[in-house]
């Protein structure tokens, strides 16, 4: 329940934040990496650091993370297939062999079919997601954003103290 409230707060908080649609879309894209790929991997530490350090919507990142976790589970067979296909492509074998035998790179678990497949999918999915989110946020703010902000429901949700957590990292 707490997670759901937090998710709704994140959603509204992000949509009505002072951040630009670009910042929000970038945050959601970075968050999608966290949700789509298996979490405990070094690349996700880098993504999280980027989410914190770059001037993108942190709330958008959290929203993207929460939103894409179920899709990550759902698409795991697809990721497995993509990763398997890539890792066993003869033309790519020299590259993977070099990566596998250099420091640090193996710690990213790139040689796991699900990790590689989900990461490649997330990279390919990043640009369409960024563009679609940007358009969506712009249109939302231009159409019903102001009315939602004035609604009692929105004020009730945002009055919760949990919202303050998000405020720490708002853009």
């Amino acid at each position: 329940m707490f997670a759901l409230i937090k998710l709704i707060q994140s959603l509204f908080g992000a949509l009505h934040s002072e951040g630009t649609p670009d910042q929000l879309a970038a945050g959601i894209v970075l968050g999608s990496f966290l949700g789509l790929t298996p979490l405990v991997n070094i690349h996700n530490a880098v993504i999280f650091a980027a989410l914190v350090l770059l001037n993108v919507s942190f709330a958008g990142g959290m929203l993207g993370w929460a939103f894409f976790i179920p899709f990550g589970f759902l698409l795991d067979p697809l990721f497995d297939w993509i990763g398997h296909t890539l890792l066993f492509t003869p033309a790519l074998t020299p590259m993977f062999t070099s990566l596998y035998n250099m420091p640090v790179a193996p710690l990213t678990n790139f040689n796991n079919t699900v990790v590689l497949g989900s990461f490649v999918f997330a990279v390919l999915f990043a640009l369409p997601l960024f563009l679609a989110t940007r358009v969506g946020v712009t249109r939302y703010r231009a159409t019903i954003g102001a009315r939602v902000r004035q609604s009692k429901c929105y004020r009730a949700v945002m009055a919760s103290k949990v919202y303050n957590v998000y405020k720490l990292f708002r853009p």
Partner: peptide, 17 residues
């Protein structure tokens, strides 16, 4: 077979050189 986790384990491919 990849590591056991909540998500699908997948396969770990080794590239000896």
């Amino acid at each position: 077979t990849g590591p056991t986790r909540v998500r699908r384990a997948g396969e770990d491919v080794r590239f000896p050189k």
